[in-house]
């Protein structure tokens, strides 16, 4: 009997070894561990054995059953593992194929620059004030200390409209008068972004339509050193902490003293390159202390109030930041260009 069990066990294990799939495994289980299997029948036969034989054989039969069950579980695990591996293998992707293209929206590059400018000045307490694009000669020129026929008018090539005295603003500076007249005698710290127009032959660097961001600070205690500090802080945040700036004397009728600010070319670190025309410096804005005439026209007493103003060009800054060589790309709206931002 014992030998028979031994034989059954050996045979079952040998059979199990040959099992290669789940169906065969189940069939093996039925034939070797099922109710009608030879091993199970051995248990049925225990009652017919002698009292002396019974324990040993029973023990042995149990042993065999446990061994087969363990072997079954092991084989079952192995098969499941194999199946999983096979299926994973068959699902292998060519991960170098491209991903699904996604529809994306983007802001126009000038909007991005304008937002950055607004944010940097906003952090310094400057708020946005806007004023009209179509202006009167009075606001665009006269109140800004640029009387009719004054040679300083040559600095702005103006689009006039068919209504006498009405023109397309040549700069955002008329906004200075609007904001001063609105808030006098409160202190002021604003930036005035907006579209401006100049009668100019279109070229890679100049267009008839362009954005400008004017800045204006009015208070009892504001100096030219403050102007330098504010604008230097601005350029560091806009172009990087390391960027060097320089202030040059210049002229604008609505500011005095007037200055222009250059930043060290961040492409060549000042050594000279094509973008900075070899000079190592990039001109980025004009500025100065608010002229007493403008201060008075804005409704502030120039003996009590001081102020500064500045104006910068978002297109120029955008072009510098992204090394764009022609301003017309910004207005061309070619999707292939815009998709890069």
């Amino acid at each position: 009997m014992l030998e028979q069990i031994e034989k059954l066990e050996q045979q079952a294990l040998a059979d199990l070894h040959a099992v290669q799939d789940e169906d065969a495994l189940q069939r093996w289980k039925v034939s070797h561990l099922g109710r009608s299997s030879s091993l199970m029948k051995t248990f049925d036969q225990l009652g017919s054995l002698s009292k002396e034989e019974r324990p040993a054989i029973g023990r042995r039969a149990n042993q065999a059953k446990q061994a087969l069950e363990a072997a079954f579980n092991q084989q079952s695990d192995r098969l499941r593992q194999q199946t999983l591996e096979r299926s994973l293998q068959s699902e292998r992707l060519d991960v170098t194929l491209p991903g699904r293209p996604q529809v994306r929206g983007r802001l126009h590059p000038i909007t991005r620059t304008l937002r950055q400018i607004n944010r940097v000045f906003g952090d310094m307490g400057f708020q946005v004030f806007r004023s009209p694009e179509v202006e009167t000669d009075e606001y665009n020129f006269e109140l800004l200390n640029i009387p009719a026929h004054h040679p300083a008018r040559d600095m702005w090539d103006t689009f006039h409209t068919s209504t006498p005295g009405v023109l397309l603003r040549t700069h955002t500076s008329p906004g200075q008068i609007h904001v001063m007249r609105k808030y006098a005698p409160e202190p002021i710290r604003v930036i005035l972004p907006g579209m401006c127009y100049r009668y100019e032959q279109v070229s890679a660097r100049k267009d008839t339509q362009f954005n400008q961001v004017e800045g204006l600070a009015i208070g009892k205690n504001i100096t030219m050193s403050d102007l330098k500090g504010t604008l230097t802080d601005f350029t560091r945040r806009m172009f990087g902490e390391q960027v060097r700036t320089r202030f040059r004397a210049s002229h604008f009728p609505f500011t005095e003293p007037s200055a222009e600010m250059d930043i060290e070319c961040f492409l060549c670190q000042g050594a000279g390159c094509g973008v900075c025309s070899g000079s190592g410096w990039l001109e980025i804005l004009g500025c100065g202390m608010v002229h007493p005439v403008v201060m008075t026209n804005g409704g502030y007493d120039p003996t009590k109030f001081m102020g500064y103003a500045f104006g910068l060009g978002p297109e120029r800054i955008t072009m510098l930041l992204h090394q764009i060589e022609d301003i017309r790309y910004l207005w061309g709206n070619d999707i292939r260009f815009l998709e890069q931002f």
């Binding site: 307490g125 708020q127 808030y183 409160e186 202190p187 002021i188 710290r189 600070a217 208070g219 009892k220 205690n221 504001i222 100096t223 030219m224 050193s225 403050d226 330098k228 500090g229 504010t230 230097t232 802080d233 320089r246 202030f247 040059r248 004397a249 005095e256 003293p257 007037s258 200055a259 202390m289």
Partner: peptide, 23 residues
């Protein structure tokens, strides 16, 4: 003031942060 600043040198003016009150 412009003449004084020009001859003194714009480059020599310090960079300060506004001490004036916020609007």
């Amino acid at each position: 003031m412009e003449e004084i600043a020009r001859i003194y040198g714009y480059e020599r003016l310090p960079e300060t942060r506004m001490a004036d009150e916020l609007p």
